[in-house]
């Protein structure tokens, strides 16, 4: 059996009686994974994040961290967790070093760890400056440093690369991968952009409108998204629809000379074209309608949302 660091069992949350913010969210984050938690703004990512950290009290008992109910472990479980929730929480009147010193005091960590961690996020030169003078990216890095300070077993990061420039994003990504691979830190990271995290995640959960739309490994994600939709412009479309319907799914005529259909994946497209040419089709154009990104958009898009 897989060892799960975070598990929620049909997590529900509502601010008022009628509006459910989260509905039946069941997340399973295996130990040692980098779990990307994806969803558009307002999907319930932050609420989930806050529930996982106990910042807002759970309305039930669905969350388990380290295989124990969260509520029974608060607040001492945080000695194993580093977290960064929403906008970076830093004391702007304090220097970078003092911010870390504050965390070090609360977590009972020796002070020499502070410089090590500052170096890790490349803030050594700016450690003595006040946090209010930092750029947005520096603040974000300092906040990450504060989360990393205690070398936690689990990192909960809410939009960690928000506001960073491309280099910054790459640096953080490298850092997280390094932590994951060298120290075995399990990382739960949320984002509203798939492209931001798809390169580092091992597992993905996708949430939209308070419901979990997908959960699985990256491979499973590509497979699920692999179903490729193409648009074919060809003379006498209606005739071709009949022919193609036998071999492909969802063949529809959308104009006099245009049909759309789904094929297994992109790799099948060349063979599909050869096949059509072989049957003397007057082929004008073939266009791929969906990719991973488009698929992500599709399942999180309001109009396409379907009830399970």
């Amino acid at each position: 059996m897989t060892d799960y660091i975070i598990q929620t069992d049909a997590l529900n949350f509502q601010y008022s009686k009628y509006k459910k913010v989260l509905e039946n969210i069941s997340i399973n984050v295996p130990k040692g994974s980098i779990y990307g938690f994806l969803g558009p703004n307002g999907a319930g990512k932050s609420t989930t994040m806050r529930l996982l950290t106990g910042i807002i009290p759970e309305q039930g008992n669905a969350i388990k961290l380290f295989n124990e109910p969260l509520q029974e472990q608060l607040p001492l479980v945080f000695s194993k967790i580093g977290s960064l929730v929403e906008s970076p929480a830093l004391y702007l009147h304090l220097s970078g070093i003092d911010n870390l010193r504050y965390i070090a005091k609360l977590r009972n960590i020796p002070e020499d760890k502070i410089h090590e961690t500052l170096a890790l996020v490349d803030l050594t030169r700016d450690g003595k400056r006040k946090a209010k003078q930092y750029s947005l990216g520096m603040k974000q890095r300092l906040a990450i440093a504060m989360a990393l300070l205690s070398e936690p077993e689990l990192l909960l990061l809410d939009e960690p690369v928000n506001g960073l420039d491309p280099n910054g994003i790459i640096d953080i990504r490298k850092l997280l991968i390094k932590l994951n691979q060298e120290k075995g830190v399990t990382i739960f990271v949320s984002s509203h952009l798939l492209s931001e995290i798809e390169k580092m995640c091992t597992h993905v959960g996708i949430i939209s409108k308070g419901k979990l739309r997908f959960e699985g490994t990256m491979q499973e994600l590509s497979k699920a998204a692999g179903l490729c939709k193409i648009q074919v412009t060809v003379d006498d479309a209606r005739q071709w629809q009949e022919k193609l319907s036998t071999a492909y799914e969802n063949v529809t005529v959308i104009a006099q000379n245009q049909i759309t259909l789904e094929i297994g994946n992109k790799d099948q497209i060349p063979d599909f074209i050869k096949n059509l040419i072989a049957q003397n089709a007057s082929l004008y154009e073939i266009k791929i309608l969906d990719g991973l990104e488009e698929w992500f958009m599709t399942i999180t898009d309001e109009k396409n949302t379907y009830e399970k």
């Binding site: 607040p75 945080f78 000695s79 929480a89 830093l90 004391y91």
Partner: peptide, 19 residues
């Protein structure tokens, strides 16, 4: 205000410290 302004309450609550 030190904590209201800087998101400190959340920060403190995600530390291994009793409320």
């Amino acid at each position: 205000q030190l904590d209201h302004k800087n998101g400190g309450w959340q920060l403190m609550e995600t530390q291994p410290i009793y409320k």
